[in-house]
Simulated scan of single mutants.
Amino acid sequence: MRNLIGLFFLSVALAACTSAPRNEVLSYTDFPRTLELKGRTLPLDTALFRYPFRIRVQGDRAVVLDLHGEDCFCHAFSYPAFCPLSSFGRRGEAPGEQLSAENVRWSGDGLWILDSNKSELIRFGCALSGDSLSRQESVNLDKDILRALDFVAMDDSTFIIPDYSGDSRFCLVNRQGSLLHKLGGIPSSNEDALKNARPALAQAWRSFIDYNSRNGVLAAVTQFGEVLEIYHLKDSTRTVYIGPHGEPEFKISQGYGIPTSIMGFSDVQVTDSAIYAVFHGRSFKEMAQNARQGIHVDGGQYIYVFSLKGEPLCSYVLDHFVNGISVDEQQGIILATDVNKDEPVIEYRPLHRLFR
């Protein structure tokens, strides 16, 4: 009953976020503070990775998601020592194996993995020894959910998944994979695309999301362009912040939205006191020029920090190019994944007062 009541209020809150009086569209041009950070490479004593994309920490365990894992998509380590524990999420087409892994999320004592190619969510639970994770259940997603590319667990009975049909912004999905509601709208000023090319617009507005159940903040950052959306589910408001690079720009080719502006954000985390997002900021033209010169660098060199209301607080300039982050405000630590390095986990320790 408690979960049903929670779902009801979430539905009301997200539905209210679409009403004009409760929406705010704001812009930012800069950050009041810019700090350079020097990272420490953590020796993992392993050559497991091909494309370490995400890192998630809970308690004394850390899991790194390898987007292009050869045998397994996920690797568990002790934390903070980072001693290898086990590999799981075996790659393959057989039952119990995965075709892809888009993201991983801790939820309670388990870890969920999204396999977009099989359109399912898989839960792994910890063994009695605590050193390994084993597959415990899988959830087949509703056929009306168009290629799920990210997810968050709202609670133990509901998932939030971005909607790429163009009809809305998010899908609410129950533990059985059934679509409950489609909520919100793409906050684009492109009226022609909203009217005539919603699927292409949704592809251009692909976003990475995170949700913090303690403060009720759902954040979405665009992979292209520079847009941050914040949904405050406790007071039913939505704020959209547009940065200097603007909305995602795109052209339509054979019905698909092809981005034409910049690589934007690649990860976001909502903590108890702030929103942290990895930002790239390189144009496709610049990346093409670098490729012709034999320069191949993947990732963003910035971590942007916003208040829970979306106000810019600080820009960190990194000495590595990273894709994923895990923020521990209590310890004043940011862990990041650098796909360009053989030892891909980097530890940053920003000035502690920014976490207070």
Rank of each mutant, 00 (worst) to 15 (best):
F9M: 12
T18V: 13
N23E: 15
P32L: 06
R33Q: 14
L35K: 10
E36A: 13
P52V: 07
F53M: 13
I55D: 01
L65A: 06
D71R: 14
F73K: 10
H75P: 04
S78N: 07
S86L: 08
A94D: 08
R105T: 02
L111F: 07
W112P: 05
S119E: 11
L128H: 09
L128R: 12
S132M: 09
E137K: 15
A148F: 07
F151P: 02
F151E: 00
D156I: 08
F170C: 00
V173D: 06
R175M: 14
L179M: 03
L179Y: 02
L180F: 11
G185F: 14
D192P: 07
P199Q: 03
L201F: 09
R206W: 10
S207D: 04
N215L: 06
A220K: 02
V227I: 03
S236Q: 10
P248T: 03
F250A: 07
K251L: 15
I252Q: 06
I252P: 07
M263S: 12
D272S: 11
A274L: 02
A274K: 10
Y276I: 00
G281V: 09
Q289T: 14
S307Y: 05
S307R: 06
Y316C: 07
D319V: 03
H320M: 06
F321K: 10
V327H: 08
A336R: 08
P350G: 00
L351G: 15
R353F: 12
F355G: 04
